[in-house]
Design a protein around this nucleic acid. Structure first.
Lengths: 202, 202
DNA sequence: CTTTTTGAACTGACCAGTCAGTGCAAAAAT
DNA sequence: ATTTTTGCACTGACTGGTCAGTTCAAAAAG
């Protein structure tokens, strides 16, 4: 049972990995279950032994991926706080963590962005929950920064959080897709400059 | 002849409008040609009379939409220049124009973002061209700002342009999807603050 | 002995694209 | 003035193929 959970775990992981790249490339509907099974090196029957349906496989994939992202953002924020860093430093660390995540799981990010704002989809409610968890991490840091006077009281927390997340997401996807020659540090510096307001002026 | 060209034009426009919302909601593959035809109030054959294929309809839709966006960004930049405004003001005006566009065509924006970073798709090359046109407008303003000393020489133009576009896109889509009660001015102020570096400090 | 996986065959719904035919308005012929 | 022709725009039933999901007996893993 202990060992069987492991075997099952391994198969599920292989299926996640196969599904995430295929769906990122082609979208959910034009990715077939046969393709996923083949890429994972597993029989089609196994997919249905492990997941109720193609949709359920996808929903669990979303939960799994956003869980990793949220944990990584939270860890970056916590480390900065422990070191006694400022909130801007925490945001900076979170940008870096976000970039690291996207670098490690570009397909997942792509797929997440592609699905996030769609309405009328089976997994809409799953996405809503999962998005809220991720955005909440950023919002909390912003709120703390305003409370302790480090950040301007004028900022609109939910909108600024969304804008920051968007800035990182889009810059990173663009980097992956169109500007491969850049290093993660290049991207991080560009975003850091924007965050710290050093674009205009000097 | 005059009237027949108009009739075709009207039908195509109806098909664009039907396709854009359906594809934004459901994605390209799970939107059927029958649905598009029904929503447009025409027969399925009419779709194929007007477009070679479902894919071609979609590609022309992309060209059409991004054309509108690019024109609107360019107009904002030009107006600011004519008034003798600064480059930061021009960027600010472009943010506003971008938000206006997204407000007017939310479905199009959604669909554009969902498709932009997908690889291995039939319309990849169309998207590449069309994206470049839009980003180039922002890059030009940034470049001019650096040249005339108004913007920091340290900024990385392509990455900063991508980040700015991303900030606007994601904040606006989030506004449309999750924060409907906000006005366009709220969103604009939040983004303007970020652009002008007034988030940290005062 | 139980859990998990295999693989192949099958079903039934669904869908992109086709095509023979309709309607109609303007041009040409009478 | 009336009839005939032309061709554009559109129609919708039909086809050939695809794919999610099922079934199951047998094998492998533990």
């Amino acid at each position: 049972m202990e060992s069987s959970r492991t075997r099952r775990e391994v198969t599920r992981q292989k299926l996640y990995e196969a599904a995430v790249t295929l769906i990122a490339e082609q979208g959910f509907s034009s990715t077939t279950v046969d393709e996923i099974a083949e890429r994972a090196g597993v029989a089609k029957g196994t997919v249905y032994y492990n997941f109720k349906s193609k949709t359920e496989l996808f929903e669990e994939l979303l939960r799994h991926g956003v869980g990793l992202l949220t944990a990584s953002l939270q860890a970056a924020a916590d480390e900065t706080a422990e070191r006694g860093g400022t909130k801007v430093e925490a945001l900076d660390a979170m940008i870096r963590a976000g970039l690291g995540f996207i670098d490690r799981y570009p397909a997942f990010t792509q797929l997440y962005v592609a699905e996030l704002w769609r309405t009328n989809r089976a997994w809409q409610s799953t996405l809503l929950v999962v998005r809220q968890e991720a955005v909440a991490v950023v919002e909390t840091v912003l709120r703390d920064g305003v409370t302790n006077g480090e950040l301007s009281k004028e900022i609109d927390i939910p909108l600024t959080a969304a804008a920051l997340v968007g800035m990182v997401l889009v810059a990173a996807l663009d980097w992956q897709a169109f500007q491969r020659e850049r290093t993660i540090d290049d991207v991080h510096s560009a975003l850091s400059l924007l965050l710290r307001g050093r674009v205009s002026g000097h």
